[in-house]
């Protein structure tokens, strides 16, 4: 069973991502903060995390990415970071933290699906 973890404090975003990616043989898990994302990752070992960079709480998306990519047992989990702003410094920080891919909000369902497939299959971005 493939697992995808969606991390965003906005429930609506998580639900939209879930219906878009729902497929047989795949489970979409939810987390609403960076802290919860780390706990669930250690616990559930998802294949992929789609995570917003900006979230309220002490751990944002970049910090959560850094933590997950540093741990031996979770470093292979793929991470796509979401950002609502074209901010080059975010992209740089995210890449340094080890994110596999980036994605701008808002996005269309087709773009989301393609991005997820590409990241899961180790294809570079087109």
């Amino acid at each position: 069973m493939e697992k995808i973890l969606v991390v965003d404090n906005d429930k609506e975003v998580r639900e939209l991502v879930e219906v878009t990616l729902a497929a047989p043989g795949r489970r979409v898990l939810h987390a609403e903060s960076g802290k919860m994302a780390i706990e669930m990752t250690l616990d559930q070992k998802p294949d992929l995390i789609i995570m917003d960079i900006v979230m309220p709480g002490e751990i944002n998306g970049i910090e959560a990415t850094r933590f997950i990519k540093k741990r031996q047992e979770t470093k292979d989990v793929k991470i796509i970071l979401l950002t609502a702003k074209v901010d080059p410094s975010f992209k740089k920080q995210g890449a340094e933290a080890g994110a596999d891919n980036f994605f701008l909000k808002p996005f269309s369902p087709r773009e989301l699906k393609e991005k997820v497939e590409r990241t899961l299959n180790n294809f570079p971005d087109a």
Partner: peptide, 17 residues
Amino acid sequence: MTQGADNPHCGVEEKSL
């Protein structure tokens, strides 16, 4: 993937859809 540009309201602070 530049749809952010169509949505000037979708800033970092005001991030809910």
